[in-house]
Design a binder for these strands. Structure first.
Length: 465
RNA sequence: GGUGCCAUAGCCAAGUGGUAAGGCCAAGGUCUGCAAAACCUUUAUCCCCCAGUUCGAAUCUGGGUGGCACCUCCA
């Protein structure tokens, strides 16, 4: 597989540190609220990365943290009159609800910052020992100038970063670029004991501590949004490599941003959507389909129209899946004929093309194109009497692709008896050419959430998506 | 000021040297009791503009124009 490595700015052949195994660290949400549509993109994209790597035989350890202590957490908890811990617990529960709706599997480990304070402190102490950090009145800062590689990820020189840096009012720092590793407790804030007094960890240090705790001092892939490149990920490198003297991450992957109706999503513009907001109006699988329809590094524009397009495309996919299930009812146990043999060959070709697209830096848009080429072949089959071998092959190929993409999550439910009864009555009505009754029944079935189609092989029903 | 990204049909989007995937929408047709779904046909002689390299460029180079992002604990 080739991965675009943000650090080298090139596509590189992916070679894991340990044969057959991959360690991935994904920057997770700060759990002060429901997560928003912008958070959803990396969660979905890198869930697909994980699924793909597993599909080609890797054993993947996927670590995604919850940031459960920071300024926003404290502010929000105060506003609501609850503890930071209570706020975190609640929103972590909510995270899993939305993640499930989006088809995002739980990570192998979901570490929380507040549960790794000893590791964080140990790491800071190491940095102090190495001369890379200094304490000031209970705060500890990273001495950016002392780390020679600073700026290697974002490709900026130290001077350039400084010329762009906002004027800093914090006179405790030796340099404006220095960043906090440990923050002294302010009145009313949660705090932990440390060699520098009561306080709490800075943001960047938690990811260094937790990633290395679960994946080792050097690991394979670190993911996150493009905006995290600087300063968050740059700082992680400075912290981890400054402490261990070893390379930290081998491949950095960053996803592009989501705009809303061509504008940057922001609370002030009022175009800020949480996934929970959207789930009230749309099935979240549409959101997943939308996210996968463009390359993960491109910026993408989110709008109602885009969701509608994704929904229609998804509908076609479900139609093809259900068509295969329907064909099984009349399948014939015989050798494939010429047309069916062609389908089987096409399915094999599609699988190869699909995997090649995914192996090319996770080109999901191209991969979906291949999936739809197979869908077209499936719909070209006759309505009845198809060779079981051909059906099985098409189904297996389609499942392979949709499993990796995490699509087609809805199972075809068994049709409930009341619907079956209506279908039976309608069949009789149709035989008697009682079109009025027949249409009434079709409307009733539709109202119950099922789509009814008449085919040469009889009535076909499926749950609407 | 520093750094980086992008520009393909009505909409979305793949394609990084060999003559424009796929999806959505639209129109006409086939099928159907009518539908629905599906299928067939139509929909970019051309990929922001201008030069250049090449037998050949959407794809490479240079220059424009337009849009976006990071340098602010925002994915």
């Amino acid at each position: 597989m080739k991965i675009y490595n943000s650090k080298t700015r090139k596509k590189e052949e992916f070679v894991p540190l340990h044969a057959g195994k991959v360690g991935i660290y994904a920057c997770g949400p700060t759990v002060y609220d429901f997560f928003h549509i912008g958070n959803a993109r990396p969660f979905i994209i890198f869930d697909v990365l994980r699924r793909y790597l597993e599909s080609i035989g890797y054993e993947v350890t996927f670590v995604q943290n919850f940031t459960d202590i920071d300024d926003r957490m404290i502010t929000r908890a105060n506003e609501e009159g609850i503890t930071v811990k209570e706020l975190a617990e609640r929103n972590i529960k909510e995270y899993f609800i939305d993640a499930k709706g989006l088809g995002i599997r739980p990570a192998t480990v979901h570490p929380r910052a507040t549960e790794h304070i000893p590791q964080i402190i140990a790491l800071i102490e190491k940095l102090v020992q190495n001369g890379l950090a200094y304490a000031q009145d209970g705060n500890v800062y990273y001495r950016v100038h002392a780390f020679s590689g600073y700026g290697c990820l974002c490709g900026q020189k130290l001077e350039d970063l400084e010329s762009g840096a906002r004027v800093n009012v914090n006179e405790q720092k030796e340099d404006p670029l220095d960043f906090a590793l440990w923050k002294a407790q302010k009145p009313g804030e949660p705090a932990w004991e440390s060699p520098w007094g009561l306080g709490r960890p800075g943001w960047h240090i938690e990811c260094s501590a937790m990633s290395m705790e679960y994946l080792g001092e050097t690991f394979d892939i670190h993911t996150g949004g493009k905006d995290l490149l600087f300063p968050h990920h740059e700082n992680e490198i400075a912290q981890s490599e400054g402490a261990t003297g070893k390379p930290y991450v081998r491949y950095w992957m960053h996803n592009g941003f989501i705009n809303i109706d061509n504008e940057k999503m922001s609370k002030s513009l009022g175009n800020f959507f949480t996934v929970r907001d959207i789930s009230a109006q749309y099935d979240l699988e549409n959101v997943r389909m939308f996210m996968l329809s463009a390359h993960y590094r491109s910026p993408v524009n989110f709008s109602r129209e885009m969701i509608a397009q994704a929904a229609s495309a998804l509908e076609r996919l479900y139609g093809a899946r259900d068509q295969l299930a329907f064909l099984k009812n009349s399948a014939e146990d015989r050798k494939p004929n010429e047309a069916e043999a062609t389908l089987i060959a096409e399915a094999d070709k599609a699988l190869v093309k699909f995997d090649a697209a995914m192996a090319d830096d996770l080109n999901t848009a191209d991969a979906i194109g291949t999936l739809f080429e197979l869908v077209r072949e499936i719909f070209k089959l006759p309505q009845a009497g198809v060779s079981m071998q051909a059906i099985d092959k098409a189904e297996q190929a389609m499942l392979h692709m949709t499993d990796i993409l995490g699509l087609l999550m809805k199972k075809t439910d068994d049709v409930p008896p009341e619907i079956t009864a209506m279908l039976k009555e309608r069949e009789t009505a149709r035989k008697e050419k009682n079109w009025k009754r027949s249409d009434e029944l079709r409307d009733a079935v539709l109202a119950a959430g099922y789509i009814l189609e008449d085919t040469a092989a009889g009535q076909k029903v499926r749950k609407s998506v």
